[in-house]
Nucleic acid binder design. Structure first.
Length: 586
RNA sequence: GCACCCGUAGCUCAAUUGGAUAGAGCGUCUGGCUUCGGACCAGAAGGUUGUGGGUUCAAUCCCUGCCGGGUGCACCA
């Protein structure tokens, strides 16, 4: 229940009494004016115009007149008619009391709601491919997915974050093929060094990524490559032979790299599924469905014919009998429902796979599954030079970005704090760097392509995570300098001292936080939170420059300290939803 | 060819889901630390919202015709 709900109810009730039977308004008809000078809550009167057969302006005037003759709603201070709008200004002291006391009471719980009714929802994201590079496209996936996971939880769902790792597809065979290829000198050297034991997990994972990129290039040059890769794929699928052994070893390298990335980004999954663990079951299901004629043979391949649903055809097996990825996705989808009794199963995957998920979803439906399988698509990440492509080498890897970010954050931090230890600089720089990386991926709405400009991403001013973190650090700094803060009355009891225009605007903004959480949840849109936090921080910084806090008279100072503490709490709450850490000092 | 997405300030993005004067960041120009942290703040310049029509009291948003860009559609994941 948000702070405005009761106020809106009271206003609606009173207006409906005046309107009598002629017309009705709903709470949803009340909006927030674009400028706080106009008022706090507003009723546009256009909708009433038809029923009452009067101009919106006249209706606003009429309502204003009627309202002034009845007892005021206690939370409303004044009402004005501005053209076709009826604008309510809320009682500042009451609102301040209500908002601040709720933040003080709920703290990190402030802004959450129970809308999801504890329904169990699984959300799958960060689907890495072993034997391939982890690039900034994956970073968008994991940042977005993790934020949605937190946001769903804040909206009262039981969100279960899981990850699915493709460790068994044809891309694996390609990499393995090139690793042991006689022309591959880089790999030979790498294996030599490996024996000496000085290679880190990160290096191993990255090496595989490079090998995959080379493999796709080499395949075009070597005439027998396709056949050879096919044979390797078979060997791996039957789990025998030297390539199977190589697969087992190298798979570990990639997974260790993923774990390292998840640790850095502080992303935790309830469970990780692997393609190789569900594929056997998948083959059985495919055979079964083939017998039941749900799947059929066409041009040598095994497919689901979905033409009559306008969804084309979905390939399960290639002509040579090897698996395409629905073979693993189907049993996994079933396993999820069975094991976790889900209300809904969400997949955070690039928007380009929209058709594939519609097909998969249709097949599940044909098999009798009624629960929703939801594809949560987001648009891709490209570079200013154009699309990312491992073939042309036009790619920014996760590693490359995070290293540059860290270096940059360290330099900046060191410049500002010459007295800090290397340890402390390192810790703070990490919080800044990882926060910045996530924020860059989340601040744009999900249906927009991100044109990722690394030079711009490396800056820490403007609409960035650092701006939000800096705002918190600054508030902290003030709170630290106030030595008697513990003994002060809580701010909500001093509401009368927070009557400045900018203070009221800040209070209004704080009150709207829960609305941002709701909206972000409904639309699966973390950028709503990012946008809200930035606006709040902007408003605070403006206030901060305008109004003295520590130098204000004792009572006012006390109240203002309470206010900025609340601002800090709300920014921190929002950052948690985005998976970004707050920083005490930076 | 069929289907979906996008087009807003020089660049990157917003716009309370159809509402009040289309707003931010970056960049450019100007100003602000002997004053709570300058990773900050204030101000200025910058717009025929790709384009023609339609629906509506009201359109950046809905419908439609063009133009431009992107993506998906059978053995890639």
């Amino acid at each position: 229940m948000d702070i405005f709900e009761k106020i809106k109810k009271d206003i609606v009730k009173q207006i409906n009494q005046i309107l009598g039977k002629k017309a009705v308004i709903k709470e949803a008809d009340l909006v927030f004016p674009p400028d706080s000078k106009m008022g706090d809550i507003s009723l546009p009167c256009f909708g009433l115009s038809k029923e009452l057969k009067k101009s919106p302006n006249d209706i606003a005037q009429m309502l204003l007149k009627e309202l002034s003759s009845v007892p005021k709603v206690s939370s409303v201070e004044s009402i004005v008619a501005a053209g076709p709008y009826l604008n309510f200004t809320l009682n500042k002291i009451n609102l301040t009391k209500k908002v601040l006391s709720e933040i003080e009471k709920k703290q990190q719980e402030f802004g959450k709601n129970n809308g999801g009714k504890k329904k169990r929802v699984m959300i799958e994201y960060s689907n890495g491919n072993t034997h391939k590079e982890y690039h900034i496209g994956h970073l968008r996936n994991i940042s977005y997915g993790d934020a949605v996971n937190h946001i769903l939880a804040a909206n009262g769902f039981e969100a279960i974050p899981v990850s699915y790792i493709n460790d068994f597809g044809i891309h694996v065979a390609k990499t393995l093929w090139w690793l042991y290829h006689k022309d591959n000198k880089t790999a030979k050297n790498f294996f030599e060094n490996l024996k000496k034991g000085s290679t880190t997990p990160g290096e191993k994972g990255r090496f595989l990524g490079q090998m995959y990129a080379e493999a796709t290039k080499q395949m075009e040059l070597k005439s027998q490559a396709k056949e050879e890769v096919g044979l390797i794929m078979k060997q791996v699928e039957t789990r025998k032979g030297e390539y199977y052994k190589l697969w087992k070893e190298t798979r570990k390298w990639s997974i260790e790299l993923f774990d390292q990335i998840y640790r850095e980004l502080k992303v935790r999954f309830r469970e990780t599924f692997y393609e190789n663990e569900v594929i056997e079951e998948g083959f059985k299901i495919v055979a079964d469905l083939y017998e039941k004629h749900i799947l059929v043979k066409s041009q040598g391949a095994v497919i689901a014919d979905l033409e009559k649903y306008n969804l084309g055809v979905l390939l399960f097996l290639r002509s040579d009998g090897t698996a395409l990825y629905p073979v693993a996705d189907l049993p996994l989808a079933m396993l999820k429902f069975k094991k976790y009794k889900l209300h809904k199963s969400i997949y955070v995957v690039d928007i380009r796979q929209g058709l594939y998920f519609e097909q998969l979803s249709k097949v599940m439906e044909l098999l009798g599954y009624k629960q929703e399988l939801m594809h949560l698509g987001y648009d891709f990440v490209k570079l200013p030079e154009g699309m990312m492509s491992s073939r042309t080498g036009n790619i920014v890897t996760y590693q490359e970005l995070s290293e540059k970010m860290l270096t940059n954050a360290k330099t900046e931090t060191r410049n500002k704090h010459e007295d800090w230890t290397e340890n402390k600089i390192d810790m703070v720089a990490k919080q800044i760097a990882y926060g910045a990386m996530k924020f860059e991926m989340i601040k744009v709405s999900r249906d927009k392509t991100i044109t990722f400009d690394i030079e711009k991403a490396l800056r820490f001013d403007g609409y960035t995570a650092a701006y939000l973190q800096y705002t918190c650090a600054r508030i902290n700094s003030i709170l630290r300098k106030d030595d008697v803060v513990e003994t002060r009355l809580i701010a909500s009891l001093q509401a009368k001292n927070l009557a400045e225009g900018k203070e009221h605007a800040l209070i209004m903004k704080l009150a709207k936080y829960s609305l941002a959480v709701e909206l972000a949840g409904q639309n699966y849109e973390p950028s709503e939170i990012a946008k809200y936090l930035f606006e709040l921080a902007q408003q605070f910084n403006d206030y901060y420059h305008d109004v003295p806090i520590l130098k204000a008279p004792e009572e006012i100072k006390s109240a203002r300290l309470g206010l900025i503490k609340a601002v800090k709490q709300v920014i921190a709450n929002g950052l948690v939803l985005l998976g970004i850490e707050t920083i005490e000092e930076m």
